[in-house]
Design a protein around this nucleic acid. Structure first.
Lengths: 131, 131
DNA sequence: TATTGTTATACTCTATAACTATA
DNA sequence: TATAGTTATAGAGTATAACAATA
């Protein structure tokens, strides 16, 4: 039941991301880095559930566009210190606002009580260990 | 929040499907055909949210293994009448039981009230038009 | 020798278009 | 000519393994 729901949701939100010039993974990176800077790319990949080889092209592009910073750690020059820039934060905020507006279209169908319960239950389920 | 949840869920349930010798799409087909027989492959594809060209290999395999029937409609020999077989229904029931057992692992964390609410809310959201 | 990031490669999934057969 | 199914092909997304730099 969840799978088709998420599929429809992503199909609806992909154009929103595109309008803001971000891919799904690019957006995920900005959201993660907005929470806090990260010291290695592998840690970032893990945080957003991606592969470390997969985020490289994404980081390249975000950096080229000035949305993130990516500098070698002076204390361990193998690692790259990752942080969001002001422009990156602006892009993230704008995109997030657009997405949340889209989510209103379906969350708005729920009663306020159901809506609160739904979000609370999702948070609970997100803590489950799947291994 | 939903996307990582579904990703983890699918990762957890894929081995269960595999153990029962079914792919995700193969299982979807059996579930759809168990509800009712379908008159064309295009309609089946639409019902499970797939592409009509994509289900062909899946139908080939399910048919070879005797899990579905697929015969030309005598009234319009372009179309293929699709139905689940007894063996197919057995395979579907067994797989479904295994999957639902897996779902207990996380639904079991919820209080009975939350659990009922969650399922009800999901059903409500599934009715949303996304276009 | 181990680790971080990168590149190269192959593999899977999916979508598009061309084709066959029926109507 | 239009439709159901099929096949072929190309593209995107992903994972694996090999490589370079640093520790």
């Amino acid at each position: 039941m969840l799978a088709p729901l998420v599929r429809d949701m992503m199909a609806a939100e992909l154009p929103v991301l595109e309008a803001n010039g971000l891919s799904m993974w690019g957006y995920s990176v900005l959201v993660a880095l907005d929470r806090s800077a990260i010291r290695t790319q592998a840690a970032l990949a893990e945080a957003i559930g991606a592969d470390k080889t997969r985020i490289i092209a994404i980081l390249d592009e975000l950096q080229d566009r000035g949305l993130i910073e990516r500098v070698p750690d002076p204390e361990d020059r193998r690692a790259r210190l990752l942080a969001i820039t002001k422009a990156g934060r602006r892009a993230k905020e704008a995109t997030q606002a657009a997405i949340q507006q889209g989510e209103e279209r379906w969350l708005g169908r729920l009663s306020p009580g159901d809506r609160a319960a739904f979000v609370r239950i999702l948070q609970e389920l997100s803590g489950v260990d799947w291994s």
